[in-house]
Each structure stands twice: as structure tokens, then as C-alpha cells.
Amino acid sequence: MTASKTCLVVDDSELIREIAGRIITDLGLEADDAADASAAIEYCRAEKPAAVFLDWDLPSMGALDFLREAASLEGDRPVIILCATENDHQQFTLAKAAGAAHHILKPFDKGAIAAKLAEIGLIDPVSEAANG
């Protein structure tokens, strides 16, 4: 079985999940989504996505709770990309310490998502330029 090239989008906004998913599939990867952190953890345990786009402001179980749970995942852990609406250095520092090595600001567009996916090695930066 080959390594998963799936990105999981975790956001309580259906619109954000739909837009991010469409961008990810346009970039040649598979996309799936979860509306909350507990569903996302279950998905990660079962499906082993390559990356997770994680909304900071989640209801009930928050982003930091997800990150603590994700740290206990067996095998290959996904690259976690925190998605935030504010450029809050303290928030990014907390998230990074908990396991989210990357972040992206919302609202994001195809270029921002492509740049982040290229940075973590999931897509070829040259192919994004051709599709841009």
C-alpha cells in the first residue's frame, strides 16, 4: 500500500471545508473533511492522512486538544497545519509546541495552500506554477 496523499480539513464551517477541499483536489491530492476535532482524531487513527489543516477555533474539543491527541497517534503522524484568522504569535507558539509545525492564515486561497503543501513536500512547487 502506498503512502496516503490525503489532506484532512478540520473546520466547523462547511464552506471552509468545501473550498479547501476543492483547492486540495485541484492540486492533485485527495481531500476529506471533519467538522470537529474528535471526528478528526478518529479519521487520523483510521486513515492516516498525510496532512491536516486544523482550524484554531473549533467548538467543544479545541485545536490544542486535537494536537495532544494527535501526539499519541501510532505510526506515521500527519503534518499538522494550523489555520487561523489572526496572525497571533502566541497562538502559533502554543500550537507549534503542541505539534503543529506549520500555520496558514484564513481566508486562504489556492496559492497559499499550494505554497504550504509544496513547503511540506506533498506537491511539487513547479507543478503548482503550471496550474496557477
Results as ranks from 00 to 15, higher is better:
Ala3Asp: 09
Ser4Pro: 03
Lys5Pro: 00
Cys7Glu: 03
Val10Arg: 03
Asp12Thr: 05
Asp12Phe: 05
Glu14Pro: 03
Ile16Asp: 01
Arg17Gln: 11
Arg17Phe: 05
Ile19Pro: 01
Ile19Trp: 06
Gly21Ala: 11
Arg22Pro: 00
Ile24Gly: 01
Asp26Phe: 06
Asp26His: 11
Asp26Met: 09
Gly28Met: 08
Gly28Glu: 04
Leu29Phe: 04
Ala31Gly: 11
Ala31Pro: 01
Asp32Trp: 03
Asp32Ile: 02
Asp32Leu: 00
Asp33Ile: 01
Ala35Ser: 08
Asp36Glu: 13
Asp36Gly: 09
Ser38His: 10
Ser38Asn: 13
Ala40Leu: 07
Ala40Tyr: 03
Ala40Ser: 11
Ile41His: 10
Glu42Val: 09
Glu42Asp: 15
Glu42Arg: 12
Glu42His: 10
Tyr43Gly: 03
Tyr43Ile: 06
Arg45Ala: 08
Glu47Val: 02
Lys48Thr: 05
Lys48Leu: 08
Pro49Gln: 10
Pro49Leu: 07
Ala50Glu: 00
Ala50Gln: 00
Ala50Thr: 00
Ala51Val: 07
Leu54Gly: 14
Leu54Cys: 10
Asp57Met: 07
Leu58Thr: 05
Leu58Trp: 01
Ser60His: 11
Ser60Val: 05
Met61Val: 13
Gly62Arg: 11
Ala63Gln: 09
Ala63Asp: 09
Leu64Met: 12
Asp65Val: 06
Asp65Thr: 15
Phe66Trp: 14
Arg68Lys: 10
Arg68Asp: 15
Glu69Val: 07
Ala71Gln: 14
Glu74Pro: 04
Asp76Met: 06
Arg77Met: 12
Arg77Asp: 13
Arg77Thr: 11
Val79Gly: 02
Ile81Cys: 07
Leu82Gly: 08
Leu82Asn: 06
Cys83Arg: 02
Ala84Asp: 08
Glu86Asn: 06
Asn87Asp: 12
Asn87Leu: 07
Asp88Trp: 06
Asp88Gln: 10
Asp88Asn: 14
Asp88Lys: 00
His89Glu: 04
Gln90His: 08
Gln91Pro: 05
Thr93Glu: 09
Ala95Asn: 13
Ala95Gln: 15
Ala95Asp: 04
Lys96Pro: 00
Lys96Phe: 12
Lys96Leu: 08
Ala98Lys: 14
Ala98Asp: 13
Ala98Val: 15
Ala100Asn: 12
Ala101Asn: 14
His102Phe: 15
His102Leu: 12
Lys106Pro: 04
Pro107Val: 02
Pro107Gln: 02
Asp109Glu: 12
Lys110Ile: 13
Gly111Tyr: 01
Ala114Arg: 03
Ala114His: 11
Ala115Gln: 11
Ala115Ser: 15
Ala115Glu: 15
Ala115Gly: 09
Lys116Asn: 14
Leu117Gln: 04
Ile120Lys: 03
Gly121Arg: 01
Gly121Ser: 05
Leu122Ser: 00
Ile123Gly: 08
Ile123Asp: 06
Pro125Trp: 05
Pro125Ala: 11
Pro125Met: 11
Pro125Thr: 14
Val126Ile: 13
Val126Asn: 09
Ser127Phe: 04
Glu128Lys: 08
Glu128Tyr: 15
Ala129Glu: 12
Ala130Asn: 07
Asn131His: 13
Asn131Phe: 11
Gly132Glu: 13
